[in-house]
Amino acid sequence: MDNLSEMLKGILEGIVLEIISRGEIYGYEITKKLHALGFQGIAEATVYALLLRLEKNKLVHITKKPSDMGPPRKFYTLNERGFEELAAFWAKWDFLSERIHLLRTNGGENNV
């Protein structure tokens, strides 16, 4: 779907955390997963920038493995803080999606 980038801004971190939570993965592999999920519009730079942020905020554990390009390749897994952040993301998502669903089905009447 096109023009999703604005809506995705707030939730992309949660999506990427979920992808990482499924098992060890490296940077561009995440981009490919996102594309396979249908998020074609996400710029390649966005994922690179997001991974730097996750690392900076200490949400991931990193394992370095040799690569054919010279520098070691980083493989990401979630650490405890990352799992907590992911759980918080899904809690917010559940709340938001429930409210949006209510709004869409009956205009939010009697459910405030």
């Binding site: 940077g27 490919k32 390649e44 690179y48 390009m69 010279g70 520098p71």
Partner: peptide, 16 residues
């Protein structure tokens, strides 16, 4: 490290 990450990320993208 950030430079190295970008080298690998860019290389992967280019290979793709």
């Amino acid at each position: 490290e950030a430079e190295n990450d970008m080298v690998l990320y860019m290389s992967d993208y280019m290979k793709d």
